[in-house]
Write a protein that binds this DNA or RNA. Structure first.
Lengths: 311, 311
DNA sequence: TTGAAAGCGCTAACAC
DNA sequence: GTGTTAGCGCTTTCAA
């Protein structure tokens, strides 16, 4: 079955490819006789013509493809996937609407080689939970070519936009809901180790009172020390885990995964706004359109939107 | 900053683009003098040359891009995302290794228009939880052009491969673990309504005893009738919900999301093998390589791998 | 109002 | 051992 190209349409309608192109693209500074237009449109319809985005990409230098680099998920807790999926979905929705597609690729654990994905002519790249070193390696690979935005990354570089939950506001709000000073903090596992560090520093709590999740049994051990005391947990899935070991004290969860329903009714929830992803998508689109412009305020903080207080 | 193409390398090294192409691609039926090879390689290195996959795609007619069509997730329970993510990850890992990239796109809820994604020259398409009507519309759009594989779909057509959990074996195993005939069946919400129907038929249980999840309150009402009785739940997240309302009876979960950890210790778990995704990826690769071949046995059933029995 | 032709970056058949 | 060239499908300038 032969491919239906503009050339085929042109032959079919007895015109040149240029004319077909004008008509199919509604080029407005070209006058086309109603009759020709009709004929070409009909032919295109009949033959079920579909434009070839690959050719367009080659011609224009814009692929309308945006890469999303996700960590390989071996060794991460099972819920990591949910966070990534959440981000992917929101980015996807907005960028699809704007005519872009997301190409996903997983970074190999040792990060020995850059994903092939990057050999493609991408219009932009999002990284999820990538360490600064990975981030820099990617940006170096591209030169200053294309915009890169980091999500859930500890990177702090005026050259790059990042999207991160506003943990500071989150912890404050959590304390308010608990009605008491939190006595401990449970931190989710992040591939980007820097994230953990930033959260630790920000929380300004005694090191002893902070626990980074590694395994259920370690978590249980840690929680045993704080039985009956109020605490804050980052990530609703981790909170769900914690609730199995600590039913006495009150917990407040910073819901970074966007599914407070998971623990609804069993802990306080502080939810971060998924709107930040829309914002990130828009920044990306802006950058692609006008790469030369400077976009200040490159830290997009996921704001607190709401939460649920227990009776 | 100018793009580094083969042409640039050629000029830099004082050879033709063809020669550059031969060398960079290690074309083996071309003899190249060691000296020229050296010179070209050096130049490519120095200029940080990256091949242009778009041009290759146009030339070869293969994009090495595989589409993944996901349902728009508005209106679905929050956990739907996890299932999709799980499939995406496993498919991605295998296909990335084979040199393919996944392009994701969300199907708009009314399915008024096909996603732009499909205008791209894809080498293949996976659908997730797509109804037969969507499936057929997509395949019609492509003619017989490219392979399409449906995951979590009720489609039953010898022309297409599908991947679906082996619910029959799952329910049997669940009963075995429960040590008693299940008295009710909780079915997860599927966008593809046909899936629900197939499960219903297969279970062969009294209609009254089967409940399709719609909301937490409806679930609670349903479970109230079966307090203390053993039952089977499809999907670990749904099981987690159910465990909040029914702590008296014993539940067995068919873990279709691949994260039995979520309910570990609180219900029997029957897990389906993620290896089916690898298999699907391989079938896809085969099809792309030899589209004319016929691949029999087009139903890939996700097998039971293991589970956890409660004390 | 329409068409010819160049060119986006690359490969491969063919010529030298 | 290396180069010339056509062509993948498309847009767009320029000419008719």
């Amino acid at each position: 079955m032969k491919k239906v190209t503009m050339k085929v349409i042109a032959e079919e309608a007895g015109v040149s490819v240029a004319t077909v192109s004008y008509i199919l693209n509604n080029v407005n500074n070209q006058s086309i006789s109603a009759e020709t237009r009709e004929r070409v449109m009909k032919a295109a319809q009949r033959l079920n013509y579909k434009r070839n985005l690959t050719a367009l990409a080659l011609k224009s230098g814009k692929s309308e493809l945006i890469g999303v680099l996700l960590p390989d998920q071996t060794g991460e807790p099972y819920w990591a996937r949910y966070r990534y999926s959440q981000a992917l979905y929101h980015l996807g929705k907005h960028l699809n609407d704007a005519g872009y597609q997301l190409v996903v690729s997983y970074i190999d654990p040792q990060f020995s080689k850059l994903p092939i994905l990057l050999e493609r002519e991408l219009d932009g790249v999002f990284t999820l939970n990538a360490s600064s070193s990975i981030f820099h390696r990617i940006s170096k690979h591209y030169g200053v070519g294309i915009p890169i935005i980091g999500i859930d990354t500890s990177l702090d570089d005026p050259l790059f936009h990042t999207v991160v939950p506003d943990f500071e506001a989150g912890i404050e709000e959590a304390a308010r809901r608990l009605g008491a000073e939190p006595q401990f903090l449970l931190i989710d596992h992040y591939v980007d180790h820097g994230m953990t560090e930033q959260i630790r520093e920000m929380a300004g709590m005694d090191e002893k009172r902070m626990h980074v999740y590694s395994s259920a049994s370690e978590l249980e051990k840690f929680l045993a020390q704080y039985s009956g005391l109020p605490g804050v947990v980052i990530n609703e899935f981790l909170c769900e885990q914690a609730l199995r070991f600590d039913t006495a004290g009150r917990l407040a969860a910073l819901c970074t995964s966007g599914c407070p329903e998971l623990i609804s009714g069993r802990a306080e929830t502080v939810v971060f706004d998924a709107d930040a992803y829309r914002e990130a998508a828009e920044v990306m689109i802006q950058y692609i359109a006008r790469p030369q412009d400077h976009y200040p305020n490159n830290h997009i903080l996921q704001k607190i939107v709401h939460g649920e207080t227990l009776a």
